[in-house]
């Protein structure tokens, strides 16, 4: 199940794939801000009344405050944690489910496969974001619910990719060769097929991560985010009023962080594509 990168020269790849280099720089910066948040600011992101009313950026408040006196800087860098936590956990759940389901359906075919196709058809025929909104309204906007709901509505499309991949791989002669040797189905699925499914999955996973960040931000913007954590989307909702009083900073910084993190992850997907497919390296 290990992914073999041993035949890839990391230094050379970084030099050749600009997207990967840029993405790593951006990601490391964001991760640094998120993990070091408690050292970079002593202000509680959720606490109101640090200032009286909307305050533009100054030496005390690097990114200013909103109309309730919340510190935008600490909100934004603590927001990295929220965004990445939702993104990483929901993507992990999504991809694990998708890989398991896609692997079994693709390998065994028949009834389970038909069932999978029906389920995915259903999910794909209804706009996912609408479903997510309904589900969050019904089950309540906690971080855990948001993560679970995101995963539940996201795995089908990735499972389809896995299934299609498994369908072609299982016809290769090395799978027959494993069977002749006496390998079990589980052994074949996880040790022979899975390593070949991982490369295309890495790209899909990266895209899933950036998608999760956007969905979480959108939910929070609509007031359906977890109120107990600082979220970029919710600051954008706050900015909707502040912007009329000239509070551009409440809009700019969270929007910037959403854009940069989504961009960084998409570039990562692009870069992974470059590494995993040596032909595309220029």
């Amino acid at each position: 199940m290990r992914l073999k990168l041993s035949n890839i020269n990391i230094k050379q790849t970084l030099r050749r794939s600009r997207s990967l280099t840029l993405s790593l720089i951006l990601l490391i910066t964001i991760l640094f801000l998120g993990t070091m948040a408690s050292f970079l600011t002593d202000k509680d992101p959720l606490k109101t009344g640090y200032s009286t009313g909307l305050t533009p950026p100054n030496s005390d408040f690097l990114m200013g405050t909103d109309q309730l006196g919340r510190d935008v800087f600490s909100w934004t860098i603590y927001g990295v944690r929220t965004a990445l936590f939702v993104s990483v956990t929901s993507t992990t759940l999504t991809v694990l489910t998708a890989v398991l389901v896609g692997l079994f359906a693709g390998y065994f075919g028949g009834k389970p496969d038909q069932l999978l196709m029906r389920i995915t058809d259903f999910f794909l025929s209804i706009p996912r974001f609408i479903l997510i909104i309904f589900a969050v309204i019904i089950f309540g906007p906690t971080l855990l619910n948001i993560i679970l709901i995101l995963s539940i509505f996201s795995w089908p499309s990735i499972a389809r990719i896995v299934r299609a991949e498994v369908f072609t791989i299982k016809e290769r002669e090395y799978i027959q060769a494993s069977r002749v040797i006496g390998a079990s189905n589980i052994d074949i699925m996880f040790n022979e097929i899975l390593p070949n499914v991982i490369p295309p999955m890495l790209v899909a996973s990266a895209l899933q991560m950036s998608d999760a960040i956007l969905v979480e931000a959108a939910l929070s913007f609509l007031g359906l985010g977890d109120p107990n954590v600082p979220s970029w989307g919710r600051m954008l909702a706050i900015a909707r009023q502040a912007i009329y009083a000239g509070g551009w900073w409440t809009l700019l910084y969270p929007a910037l962080f959403i854009t940069i993190s989504v961009l960084a992850i998409n570039l990562l997907a692009d870069g992974l594509n470059d590494i995993l497919n040596p032909k595309t390296i220029r």
Binding site: R172, E173, Y174, Q176, A177, V180, G182, E192, P195, N196
Partner: peptide, 22 residues
């Protein structure tokens, strides 16, 4: 079946797809 799998082996037609590229 285990003994059979040990005693009957195969070489396939296409050496390019007979070996796992990973």
């Amino acid at each position: 079946l285990r003994a059979f799998r040990k005693s009957v082996q195969a070489v396939f037609q296409d050496p390019y797809s007979s070996l796992n590229p990973r």
